[in-house]
C-alpha cells in the first residue's frame, strides 16, 4: 500500500494539530501544577498525626488509584452537571478530572519525598522554634521536592500520555486532532502513523530531559 500525506497542509497543521497540541500541553501543565499542590497537601494529611486527616488522604489516594482513568473522566463529566446544574464543557471537565486524579499519584510521590528527609531536620526546625507549617515550608518540603523532582517529572510524562484519554468525552486534544484528520480526509493509516510519531517524539524528548535533570540533581547533592 502507498502512503499519501498530501492532506498535511499548513492550514490543517495550524487549525487541527496545533489546536489539539496546545490543549494537551495546557491540560498537562495545569494538572501538573494543581496536582502537585493538592498532592502535597494530601501527602501532609496522610503523614499527619490526626487520624481523621490521614484516613481521609489514604482513602482518597487508594480509591482514585484503583479506578481506571477513563472511568474517572466519565464520572466527573457525568457528575459536574448534576452538582452545578449545567455542563462546564469537555475541556474544563478534563482539567478538573486530571487535577483530582493526578493529585493522588503526586501525593504518593510527595509522601515518599517527605519521608526521605531525615527526621533530625524537622526536629532541628522545631528546636529553632518553628511551628509545623514553617518547618514544612522552609525545611522539609524544599528538600522533599528536590529529592523527588525526577519522579515528579516522570509522572508528568505519564500525565501527558494520559491526556489522550479525554477521547472518551470528546475533548479536542492532540489525539482528537489526528482522529478528526483521519475522518475528514479518510486517511486513518497516515493520520495515526503521524499521531504515533508526534507522541513518541514529545515523550521521548521529555524523558531524555528528565534523565539530564536527574543527573544534574545528583551532582549538586
Amino acid at each position: 500500500m502507498s502512503l499519501d500525506f498530501s492532506f498535511l497542509t499548513l492550514k490543517v497543521i495550524n487549525n487541527i494539530i496545533l489546536t489539539g497540541l496546545i490543549f494537551s500541553f495546557k491540560l498537562t501543565l495545569i494538572a501538573m501544577v494543581l496536582g502537585i499542590i493538592l498532592g502535597t497537601l494530601l501527602a501532609m494529611m496522610r503523614l499527619s498525626k490526626f487520624k481523621l486527616l490521614s484516613s481521609f488522604a489514604l482513602g482518597y489516594v487508594t480509591i482514585v488509584r484503583s479506578i481506571p482513568l477513563v472511568m474517572v473522566i466519565l464520572w466527573v463529566f457525568l457528575l459536574i452537571p448534576l452538582f452545578i446544574g449545567r455542563s462546564l464543557g469537555t475541556e474544563y471537565s478534563a482539567i478538573i478530572t486530571f487535577t483530582l486524579f493526578e493529585a493522588a499519584f503526586y501525593a504518593e510521590i510527595m509522601r515518599a519525598g517527605i519521608q526521605s528527609v531525615k527526621r533530625d531536620q524537622a526536629n532541628a526546625g522545631y528546636a529553632l522554634g518553628m511551628n509545623y507549617f514553617q518547618c514544612m515550608r522552609y525545611i522539609v518540603l524544599p528538600q522533599a521536592f528536590r529529592n523527588m523532582l525526577p519522579v515528579l517529572l516522570t509522572q508528568t510524562i505519564v500525565l501527558f500520555q494520559d491526556t489522550s484519554l479525554v477521547y472518551a468525552i470528546g475533548a479536542f486534544d492532540l489525539l482528537k486532532g489526528f482522529s478528526i484528520i483521519s475522518k475528514n480526509f479518510n486517511r486513518p493509516v497516515e493520520a495515526y502513523i503521524l499521531a504515533t510519531i508526534v507522541y513518541f517524539i514529545i515523550c521521548f524528548s521529555l524523558s531524555y530531559l528528565v534523565k539530564r535533570i536527574q543527573n544534574r540533581v545528583r551532582i549538586v547533592r
Binding site: 500520555q161 489525539l175 502513523i193 499521531a195 504515533t196
Partner: peptide, 14 residues
C-alpha cells in the same frame, strides 16, 4: 513513549 490509546489505534487502524 507512546500513549496506550495511540498504540491501540495503531494496531487497529494501521
Amino acid at each position: 513513549n507512546i500513549p496506550v490509546l495511540v498504540q491501540v489505534f495503531l494496531w487497529y487502524f494501521v
